[in-house]
Design a protein around this nucleic acid. Structure first.
Length: 270
DNA sequence: AGCTGTACCTGCAGGC
DNA sequence: TGCCTGCAGGTACAGC
């Protein structure tokens, strides 16, 4: 599912593909996914030139010349595909953004949980303010420790809390906790300084690997040109229930933490 | 504040 | 074969 590395990959690819193009039209067959509504969005963005792309956590914003912009959240099964106008419709294609040069940006989403939202520059600033700092950007070790120490919730739930830290979802949380050898159920504030430091480094490491391999396509994720990522070939524990741990003789187990499927090695993670 | 439960939605696996 | 049920999962929200 699209987390920080997947959305970052899309952002980087789209830069050279859509910046400088004009948005001509926006259409949808799932009005709920376009906010506030497709007519308002169309009026606000039609004729405007794309200035750049930004990402905060798992949200991508297409910045337009002026105040308007389109924020996109892919949730679990969203895709943003760059296609030629008139090309065969994509699976689960629900929002089509027509661009100059006979191109299209297509928002496709099997489960229809994702959204495309009209967000002004100030609205975007506000939205960004609701997210925690970004690993590898403005999240430093001290800020990370502080955030862990502030709560007794399970450490996995905390690192996936977008208000605390931006961009970590289920896949990278599982792999980071494995790499740091920490039991995902441990109360966050009970981690030692050493453990917090290990986890901090592990989070950075798995996100970096995720970006290096252009994201994880274990299920539906595809990049802007419809290509798969490769991080799934490097999963440490995620999705590997019943398979051997890479570090001991034990097997990877699946449990539920904070209501979400969690993969870990009970022998290695304490 | 922070927990739990529920909703959103569809494809797929499992049971019979 | 095919119907039916239940589950996955990021996030928001209601209610305790």
């Amino acid at each position: 599912m699209p987390e920080l590395p997947e959305v970052e990959t899309i952002k980087r690819d789209l830069k050279s593909l859509i910046v400088g193009r004009k948005i001509l039209d926006v259409t949808t067959d799932t009005p709920k996914q376009v906010q506030p509504d497709v007519e308002t969005v169309k009026k606000a963005v039609a004729g405007k030139k794309i200035k750049g792309l930004e990402r905060q956590a798992k949200v991508l914003r297409i910045n337009l010349v002026g105040e308007a912009g389109l924020a996109v959240h892919l949730k679990l099964t969203g895709r943003l595909l760059f296609r030629n106008k008139g090309e065969r419709r994509d699976d689960w294609q629900h929002v089509t953004i027509n661009l100059s040069g006979d191109k299209e940006l297509r928002f496709c989403d099997l489960r229809k949980f994702g959204w495309v939202k009209l967000v002004t520059s100030s609205g975007w600033k506000e939205m960004k303010g609701e997210f925690g700092p970004e690993p590898g950007k403005d999240l430093d070790l001290e800020a990370f420790k502080k955030r862990l120490a502030s709560t007794g919730r399970a450490v996995k739930v905390v690192i996936m809390d977008q208000k605390k830290i931006s961009g970590v979802g289920n896949i990278y949380a599982c792999d980071a906790l494995y790499l740091a050898k920490i039991d995902p159920r441990r109360p966050a504030k009970e981690l030692s300084k050493k453990e917090a430091e290990r986890l901090f480094k592990a989070v950075l490491k798995v996100l970096k690997a995720g970006i290096k391999y252009r994201g994880a396509s274990d299920q539906y994720y595809l990049d802007a040109l419809g290509r798969k990522g490769h991080y799934q070939e490097h999963f440490l524990v995620y999705g590997r229930a019943g398979k051997g741990c890479f570090d001991c003789e034990g097997k990877v187990q699946r449990i539920v933490v904070g209501g979400r499927g969690t993969f870990w090695c009970p022998k290695c993670q304490k």
